[in-house]
Structure formats: structure tokens, C-alpha cells
């Protein structure tokens, strides 16, 4: 009943608006008015609003930039992130400058050169010199940005992985992550999706010796200042390993292994002090839509001193030990 009433009210108000506009138009037809004059007046108003909009827009943007700054990610907690962050702010300075200049010109011209009766615009069709400069200057600036960007990209993605890296696999499935540490030999044991069976949910091949000392965990602990080589795999659909605080992201793609190498530089404890938030925790989130519960897929990440890390890792069960334990409990049943 309420729905019906709402519909009736909406329909009636549309009819009302249509009728009143019609009435206004009929009235204006009765009064012989100069439409050109009318348009001229409207023009003036719109030109003023253009200027007002420009000012309000910049005040609003400025307000956001200052008041939202505290919500942005804290300093990068990895070596790689620190260099890309620096580039980010340089880029923002360049585009911010261009943004402010061009928007001011656009709206200012819209206001300044409003229509005047009997005036002719300046017949200005092209100017080779001007056009040369505004093609050449952006080209030079862009080449600079490209060169800088490619240098940073090389440093993060293409440089040879350091010898002393620690290998960890990030295995994704709907809707959780599992970390697999390579153990003492720093080598991940072979795994294949057809070997997935009950407790062996990563499909690890237990006949491969390298797999015996692998350690599976549901929380990611990282020793500070230690180069980490993440190897990503997925069980079902595409997921994405995204750790915003480290500026790390790589997709987990079923059927292939991807990787990302980075060095965490700030422990969780230190970051709590930096952010002045005693509850702060690093986090890994899934950043590729992977199903209905995508928005809750995550893993906690802890960065700690090497001693703390070794202590934690020592307390975890190796893959082969957990398989043996599983077997014996099965046998007991």
C-alpha cells in the first residue's frame, strides 16, 4: 500500500512539474521577450558560477588533501616500497602542478571570455611555434618520468634475486592464504594439484626430499632486513597477494608460479610506534575478485627480529612431521 502511494506521489509530481513548466513557457510566450537578451543574462550567471566552481573545487580538494592525509598508508615497511614511494611523490608534484595550471586556465577562460554581443572572437587557427613547444615540453618531461620509472621497475622486479633470500610460498584458495616456508634447505618441495588430498591441502609431494622440512603456517612471519622471495600459487581461481604496507602485490594464478622479492625493514613493534597505534598489524589481503567471500580473504603478517622469528619458526611443525602425525591418528581411529 505504501509502495502504491509512493508511486502515485511520484507520478503526480512529475505531471505537476511538467504542467508548471508548460505554464511558465506559455507565460513567457505571452510576454514578448528578447530570447537573445535572456540568453545573455544566463551566460553571465553561468560564467560566474564557473569561476565560483573553480574556487570551491580547489578549496574542497585542498581540504581533502590535508584532512585525508592521515588515512594514507604509513611509510613503506620495505626497501623496495621506499624507492617507489619517493617516485610517487615526485610524480604527484608534477601532475599536481599541471592539474592546477590547466584547470585554472580552463575555468578562467570560460569566465573571462564570455559572450559579448557584436564582438568577434580572435581568429587564431594555429601557431607552429606554440604547438612545437607544447608538444616538446611534455615529451621531455615524460621521457624523464619514463626513464625514472623504468629504473625503479628494474630495481624492484628485474634485478637478480639476492643469494641470501628466504623462500616462502603463498598459496591461495577460496577464501584463505597458506604460507609455506622452504625450511633449512631453502627449497620448496614439489607440489601438484592432483596430489591434494585431505590434510595435504597444498598437494605437496612427500616423496620429494626437499618437501620434508617445509613448514605450513596460516600466519606470515618475516625476519626484519632479510630478503624474502615470495612464490605465489593458487588452487582454484586467480587471487592476488597484496601487502599494502610493503608496497607488494602479485597475482596468484592457477597453473603457474609467480614471484615477488622484497626486504621488510620495519618490525611490527616499530611500526606501532611510528603509527602511534598500539593495535597496528601488517596484513595481506586478496586483491583480485575471487568469489562471494573475496572481501574477507586475508592473512596476518608479523615482522620481527631474526631471533624472535627463529623461535617462532622452531615451534612450528614440519610438513613431514604433520603428515606422520595425521597418519598415526588415522591408524589409531
Amino acid at each position: 500500500m505504501t509502495t502504491l502511494l509512493i508511486c502515485v506521489v511520484i507520478i503526480l509530481s512529475v505531471i505537476f512539474i511538467a504542467r508548471s513548466i508548460r505554464v511558465m513557457e506559455l507565460i513567457s510566450e505571452l510576454k514578448p521577450k528578447d530570447d537573445v537578451q535572456e540568453q545573455h543574462k544566463e551566460n553571465k550567471w553561468n560564467a560566474r558560477i564557473l569561476l565560483l566552481f573553480l574556487i570551491v573545487m580547489f578549496i574542497y580538494f585542498g581540504y581533502q588533501t590535508f584532512s585525508y592525509a592521515k588515512y594514507l598508508l604509513p611509510v613503506s615497511a620495505s626497501k623496495e616500497g621506499a624507492i617507489s614511494d619517493k617516485m610517487l611523490w615526485i610524480n604527484f608534484a608534477v601532475i599536481g602542478f599541471v592539474f592546477v595550471c590547466t584547470q585554472i586556465l580552463l575555468f578562467w577562460f570560460g569566465y573571462r571570455y564570455m559572450y559579448q554581443k557584436g564582438k568577434k572572437a580572435f581568429f587564431f587557427t594555429h601557431n607552429n611555434k606554440l604547438e612545437f613547444y607544447w608538444t616538446a615540453v611534455p615529451t621531455v618531461v615524460l621521457l624523464g618520468l619514463i626513464g625514472y620509472g623504468l629504473k625503479v621497475w628494474y630495481d624492484i622486479m628485474l634485478k637478480p634475486v639476492p643469494e641470501n633470500k628466504m623462500v616462502i610460498e603463498i598459496y591461495a584458495r577460496q577464501f584463505d592464504f597458506t604460507a609455506r616456508y622452504a625450511g633449512k634447505d631453502n627449497q620448496l618441495g614439489y607440489a601438484y594439484f592432483k596430489l591434494i588430498d585431505g590434510p595435504n591441502r597444498l598437494g605437496i609431494d612427500s616423496t620429494d626430499k626437499a618437501s620434508h622440512d617445509d613448514i605450513l603456517t596460516t600466519e606470515l612471519h618475516l625476519p626484519v632486513n632479510q630478503p624474502i622471495l615470495l612464490k605465489m600459487r593458487s588452487q582454484d581461481v586467480i587471487h592476488s597477494t597484496y601487502m599494502p604496507h610493503f608496497r607488494v602485490q602479485m597475482n596468484n594464478v592457477p597453473g603457474m608460479t609467480t614471484q615477488f622479492c622484497f626486504t621488510p625493514t620495519i618490525t611490527t613493534e616499530e611500526m606501532r610506534k611510528i603509527t602511534k597505534n598500539p593495535k597496528f598489524d601488517y596484513i595481506m589481503v586478496c586483491n583480485k575478485v575471487c568469489g562471494a567471500a573475496h572481501f574477507g580473504m586475508k592473512m596476518n603478517v608479523v615482522v620481527e627480529s631474526p631471533e624472535q622469528f627463529n623461535q617462532w619458526l622452531g615451534g612450528q611443525q614440519t610438513f613431514i612431521a604433520s603428515m606422520r602425525q595425521q597418519k598415526s591418528t588415522m591408524a589409531m581411529k
Partner: peptide, 19 residues
């Protein structure tokens, strides 16, 4: 793209704009 933007701005410069 930059060329296009500058050309639009140059078109508005000293124009006689009907809004």
C-alpha cells in the same frame, strides 16, 4: 593527449563564449 588539452585551452583563449 597533452596536445589536445592545450589546443582546447587555446581555442577558449580570446574566444566569445556562449555557455
Amino acid at each position: 593527449s597533452a596536445v589536445k588539452v592545450f589546443n582546447y585551452l587555446a581555442t577558449l583563449w580570446k574566444a566569445n563564449i556562449q555557455l
